[in-house]
Computed example of a mutant assay.
Amino acid sequence: MKLTLKKESRRARVRTGHPWVFINELENIPDPKFDGQALPLEDARGRHLGMGIVNTQSQIAWRRYSTGHDAWNREFFEKAIMAAEQNRDEEPFRRLIWSEADDLPGLVVDQFDEVLVVQALTKAIDEALPVIIELLQERLSPREVLLRNDAPARKKEGLEIYARTLSGEPLKPFWAEIYNVQYYLDLEGAQKTGFYLDQRQEHFKVATLAPDWRVLDAFCNQGAFALNCAIAGAREVVAIDSSQEALEQGRRNAEKNEVEIQFLKENVFDYFSNNREERFDMIILDPPSFAPNRRSLQGAAKGYKELHVRAFNCLNPGGILATYCCSHHVTRSLFREIIEEAASDTRRKIQIMYETGQPLDHPVIMNFPESEYLKGFVLRVLR
């Protein structure tokens, strides 16, 4: 069987390189028996547009993995895994496979030294997991594989939610050194795949600006920014999060690294409102996504602006704001516009020191804006 785009789908993004086709863009809806399998896609004129995995239970009915005619099998998986590994630096902590960016739609693999954390977010990947895990074991010889198949996105594919190790034994938390900082990693109990590897380089880079400064790490989670700043010689570091569990882990990390950090259980917006006289030399804003879907974009924009207004009001002249957004619905241009409006409202003169985004092991694919979610600006408040 092959799938065909509707004649009126002349502007379908798949024509210009986007890897997704929504179910309402198809002329012929496949039989559900093909869910989890691979089928070719053609346009109305019969031109081949690639091979993709199918799931009629999802709004994204077809996801391209090849522009050719490659079969969805062990040989293809091995080739894709090898290519992904070759495109990464040989770090012990890295994202090894990043879904469509590595031609394996729905597969995420994070490597934490001898432990692999695997997420299967599509039906086809879920069904191929035994073969994929076998290939990963052959290439990397991990001591354990943790299946973090508890992401809400699995529900859209009609998949069950669970988290377990391949061995069936609990994965005990362990200490690991990432960019010269010791972290207590609870990969089975923490958010997503256990640690935000996409920010590991930025944790270190921002901290080089922090010596002798008073620093606020807002939405600190495990305290990665705070820890790096404290180790780099910050005069004082305050770290805020609303999760008691995250704060306890942050305190454990601080004790292990022999640094002083004040961890506070607070809503960040409330903290700024209740501490209007507080002043910092550096503020780091790295919140969770305010826009999980397009419908929430307007409210998210208001939230991001208010957050930046409050942060600018608490920065000393000459201070630095390092701010990040992890929602792909908020584009880089929109995020910059929000920051500019906040700067205008607070009458602060702002200089862009540098822009940042995803590290090389989280590659962004041209013509696939959904692959770009992380963007950031490091700004100096001149006055």
Score class of each variant (00 low, 15 high):
12 A>H: 11
169 E>G: 03
152 P>K: 12
233 G>E: 07
172 K>L: 08
21 V>W: 03
21 V>I: 14
238 V>W: 03
318 G>I: 11
376 G>Q: 06
151 A>S: 15
207 A>L: 10
158 G>M: 04
153 A>V: 13
320 I>P: 02
15 R>S: 11
3 L>G: 12
310 R>C: 09
2 K>C: 08
158 G>D: 04
2 K>S: 15
130 P>I: 04
73 N>L: 13
331 T>H: 11
306 E>P: 05
7 K>E: 12
223 G>L: 01
94 R>H: 04
80 A>W: 02
30 P>E: 02
126 D>S: 14
212 D>F: 10
201 Q>Y: 15
379 L>W: 04
210 A>S: 15
66 S>N: 05
163 A>T: 14
220 C>E: 00
291 A>V: 14
188 E>W: 10
170 P>M: 13
117 V>D: 09
13 R>T: 10
165 T>W: 09
364 V>E: 00
97 I>D: 00
301 A>K: 07
333 S>C: 05
179 Y>M: 07
248 E>G: 15
75 E>A: 15
32 P>K: 04
68 G>H: 02
292 P>V: 06
31 D>L: 10
44 A>D: 07
96 L>W: 00
309 V>D: 03
176 A>W: 12
379 L>I: 00
287 P>F: 02
143 R>Q: 14
186 D>Y: 05
83 A>T: 13
356 T>P: 00
245 E>S: 14
31 D>H: 12
257 N>S: 02
322 A>T: 00
239 A>V: 08
153 A>F: 05
82 M>T: 12
50 G>D: 08
363 P>L: 01
211 P>L: 06
100 E>R: 07
